[in-house]
């Protein structure tokens, strides 16, 4: 037996998508279960850890704290949307890889989204500004050091290009 469903249509990573889901489906569940975009991770489901961070119209939000149906017609960017159009790594993704800014990889998508959002509005952030920006995302593996290094590296590389 299934629940009553509702049609939700969004723009995700530049593509129009839709799905029939129960009204109580959160955005993170919609992305993961309905669209099978499993790069966005759920860590606490109460808005604290930041693993589920995605961009809503360019601004970072917790996808566990919002229902998909609330976002009808809006633009969402997930980690899968950060890569370059040919599928190769973005400068930020490549900098994470180069600086070993990930270990288990679970918080990484949310970290990347928060860092990308920072770089979108501040091309040359200071260490302190990087730390403030990623303070919304908990990481248990890295002690944040290599993540800060990676964001700095990405900013330097973006400035050169």
């Amino acid at each position: 037996m299934s629940e009553e469903t509702i049609l939700v249509s969004l723009e995700v990573n530049g593509k129009q998508v839709s799905g029939l889901v129960p009204a109580r489906t959160t955005l993170v569940d919609f992305l993961r279960d309905e669209l099978r975009l499993t790069g966005t991770h759920a860590g606490c489901e109460h808005g604290t850890c930041g693993a589920c961070t995605v961009l809503l119209n360019g601004e970072p939000i917790r996808s566990c704290l919002v229902f998909a149906v609330q976002l009808e017609g809006q633009k969402i960017t997930t980690v899968e949307g950060l890569s370059q159009p040919d599928g190769s790594l973005s400068i930020l993704q490549d900098s994470f890889s180069a600086a070993h800014a990930q270990q288990c990889g679970y918080c990484t998508p949310g970290m990347l989204i928060s860092a990308q959002s920072l770089l979108d509005r501040n091309a040359q952030p200071s260490d302190e500004e990087i730390r403030v920006a990623i303070s919304s995302n908990l990481c248990r593996c890295t002690g944040y050091q290599q993540i800060v290094n990676a964001v700095k590296l990405a900013a330097e590389r973006m400035a050169r290009e």
Partner: peptide, 12 residues
Amino acid sequence: AKESPRFVTGQG
């Protein structure tokens, strides 16, 4: 790390 490409693209 060999593992990093899949993690930074959300393909873990």
